[in-house]
């Protein structure tokens, strides 16, 4: 095999991996995007909610013999989907008793004092979740091991008989599920009545109140929904990536990079942002050592923040 073929194969391989991982990242970013888009709240704990989603999926799949019953395809998917409602309930409860004390109409409109209280509160929640996770789950890395995690489909040979791409099955399944859920989220936000109310609450909380929308409730649902979607994404990641309770912080930056890239406040933009981050992360392995993968994401993130803070994908008209 010639050098050109090897380089081509590496690039195609990284792109394929980037696209698959990117779809899952896109889903987790969309979850954060819902929260930021509707409530204008920066949620530092989002990565830790995702970690919880991973463990929910992990325990669901491993402890009830689900894998044996449902098989390697449906089992992990079911685990990830179960994480959704669990995290939704957790998100709603946390919003009701904690988050709402530092958010709401009062702060949604203004950029000043209010949002530091939110940042600090969610930082506190993040610390409790990640360290509480350590207490509950232990520090040993785990993952949902299925035959899919280690097997791949071979695409190719593409160029002559040399270049082929291997598509990890677990990632592929995760990517498909991510696209479906992100699509459903899009339909919910744009077509369903309550989804539209969410957008109205995001756009102008005060006016939304005047036309009879319960902004408080809209925020609560948005928070639960955002947490749930990121939790599902976590469940999908769990099927191919070993994790421990501190995994959240790694993904917080992935998520914020994606959301900022997509234009803060745009849910669909957040999905594209996440996809881009996945690509950047995987492509960076071509030229950078593996340890610097995440540093590449930080650099992209900082560049976006400095050069184009309004993001690349969001249109200001489509704020939700």
């Amino acid at each position: 095999m010639g050098t050109v073929a090897i380089v081509t194969e590496n690039i195609l391989q990284a792109m394929a991996a980037g696209l698959l991982i990117g779809c899952i990242y896109g889903l987790m970013c969309a979850g954060l995007g819902v929260i930021f888009g509707v409530m204008r709240v920066i949620n530092f704990a989002q990565g830790d909610f995702m970690m919880l989603g991973m463990y929910v999926a992990y325990y669901f799949v491993t402890s009830f013999g689900i894998l044996a019953i449902m098989g390697p395809y449906a089992g992990p998917i079911a685990g990830a989907l179960v994480a959704g409602p669990v995290l939704f309930v957790l998100g709603v409860v946390l919003h009701k008793y904690l988050v709402t004390r530092v958010t709401g109409i009062r702060v949604a409109g203004l950029e000043g004092e209010g949002h530091f209280a939110q940042l600090i509160l969610t930082l506190g929640i993040a610390l409790v979740l990640s360290n509480g996770g350590l207490i509950l789950f232990g520090s040993e890395p785990v993952s949902i091991r299925t035959p899919l995690s280690r097997t791949a489909w071979e695409l190719g040979p593409l160029m002559g008989d040399a270049v082929s791409i291997f598509v990890n099955k677990a990632r592929f399944v995760g990517a498909i599920v991510s696209i479906l859920i992100a699509g459903a989220l899009y339909l919910f936000i744009t077509k369903v009545r309550f989804g539209k109310a969410l957008r109205a609450a995001a756009d102008n909380p005060q006016s939304a109140t005047y036309v009879g929308i319960d902004v408080e409730k809209a925020h609560r649902v948005a928070f639960g929904l955002g947490v749930a979607i990121t939790g599902i994404a976590g469940g999908l990641v769990a099927s191919y990536y070993p994790f421990q309770p501190y995994v959240g912080i790694e993904f917080v930056i992935v998520m914020y990079a994606g959301v900022v890239l997509g234009g803060m406040g745009s849910i669909i933009g957040a999905f594209w942002g996440g996809l881009t981050i996945g690509l950047v992360q995987q492509m960076s392995t071509l030229i950078l050592p593996t340890q610097l993968q995440n540093t590449a994401i930080f650099v992209v993130f900082l560049l976006v923040v400095f050069i184009r803070p309004e993001g690349f994908f969001g249109r200001s008209a489509e704020r939700t």
């Binding site: 509160l121 506190g124 610390l127 409790v128 979740l129 309770p245």
Partner: peptide, 19 residues
């Protein structure tokens, strides 16, 4: 016994203070 207790204490401390 409880390895993450330090972080939990700090987390609770700021949640309580901010509220």
């Amino acid at each position: 016994v409880i390895p993450g207790i330090q972080g939990v204490v700090f987390g609770l401390a700021i949640i309580l203070v901010i509220i």
